[in-house]
């Protein structure tokens, strides 16, 4: 039985009084892949930052737990974080050009990361770096190591990011909008690469994106976020084919993909709430076509059954086990 790698329990992250993440809970087992989908203000990136202990100044964990391999990350000291970041949890970012220091070669930067976690000789570190670069389909690894970030294209640099992250042999890889800044054809290649490497190295993966397509390609499970909460989660096929939450349904319907000629996009009126908006009732209610009285009065509790979750007052079509909010 695969053991649980990461447990996030009732996590609330606030900036002063404004809650950016509210009562967030999810688990990730070894080798599992989970995609977090949401628009701006949903809190998806903030979730990633919390996991790495990199919350911006003024933002802190107000309540809840983040447990990684049995350790409560809330209580981690800087020294413990230095050991964990990269080795236990690694991250790749949206914009590869800004993820690297423009003043050093990528080889130097890879070496720094590897040296921080592995007690290897310079030669072995270089071999490690070159091995993972080749895994990332960069065959001219020697030349790449000597290159500066600006000398490499976006696609190549993102491959280097992936190689760097994987060279540390992390157990969990977090990808924050890994392909948003890339062209369509390059995006496709990078997603294929991530898919291949995830299977090959058996890394657990948390993918954050605003694009269902990305998450669908890389993950077996999807969680949809809105206003700092998870409003729906489950297996990819369940969420995409039988969405339970009106937001998920509306979001899926607002993509022009697979639309027949003449059909109009069904749009969600209004705009997504800004990060940190606090509401008495369901945050989506103002834009929901199926809202009723209760929706404005109380935040819907999560109903969970067999890994399938939804936070909505509309009765789901099967038995659900109520869990305290």
């Amino acid at each position: 039985m695969t053991q649980t790698l990461l447990t996030v329990e009732h996590l609330t992250v606030s900036a002063g009084q404004t809650p950016l993440l509210q009562n967030l809970s999810f688990t990730l087992k070894k080798k599992e892949t989970l995609g977090l989908v949401g628009e701006s203000g949903s809190g998806k990136s903030m979730t990633a930052w919390s996991l790495l202990g990199l919350l911006p100044p003024g933002v802190f964990v107000q309540s809840g737990k983040i447990i990684f391999k049995g350790d409560d990350l809330r209580r981690f000291s800087q020294a413990q974080w230095r050991v964990l970041r990269g080795k236990g949890l690694a991250m790749i970012f949206q914009n590869p050009q800004t993820a690297f220091n423009p003043l050093f070669t990528v080889g130097k930067q890879m070496d720094n990361a590897i040296a921080a976690h592995f007690d290897e000789t310079k030669k072995t570190r270089r071999e490690r770096a070159m091995f993972y670069l080749r895994q990332a389909e960069l065959s001219d690894s020697g030349r790449i190591l000597k290159s500066y970030p600006f000398q490499l294209s976006g696609g190549m640099l993102q491959r280097v990011s992936i190689a760097l992250a994987l060279s540390l042999e992390p157990e969990l890889l977090i990808a924050d909008e890994p392909t948003t800044a890339l062209d369509a054809t390059i995006q496709f290649q990078i997603l294929n690469l991530l898919q291949k490497l995830q299977k090959q190295f058996k890394t657990a993966m948390l993918v954050i994106s605003h694009h269902f397509g990305v998450v669908s390609k890389l993950c077996t499970q999807i969680a949809v976020m809105y206003n700092g909460r998870i409003v729906e989660a489950g297996l990819k096929s369940d969420v995409l084919n039988q969405p339970l939450h009106p937001y998920t349904r509306a979001l899926l319907a607002s993509r022009p993909v697979n639309l027949l000629s003449g059909q109009t996009l069904k749009t969600i009126p209004g705009t997504p709430p800004a990060a940190g908006t606090v509401t008495d009732g369901c945050a989506f209610a103002p834009r929901c076509s199926q809202r009723f009285e209760l929706c404005d009065k109380a935040v819907p509790p999560e109903l969970i059954s067999n890994n399938r979750r939804v936070a909505c007052f509309l009765k789901p079509k099967y038995d659900a086990e109520k869990i305290t909010d």
Binding site: A250, S254, P256, I268, T271, P272
Partner: peptide, 14 residues
């Protein structure tokens, strides 16, 4: 733009 907003603008344009 966000996805749900993209859909709105696409509809306006159409």
């Amino acid at each position: 733009l966000d996805i749900s907003i993209q859909a709105q603008i696409l509809n306006v344009l159409r």
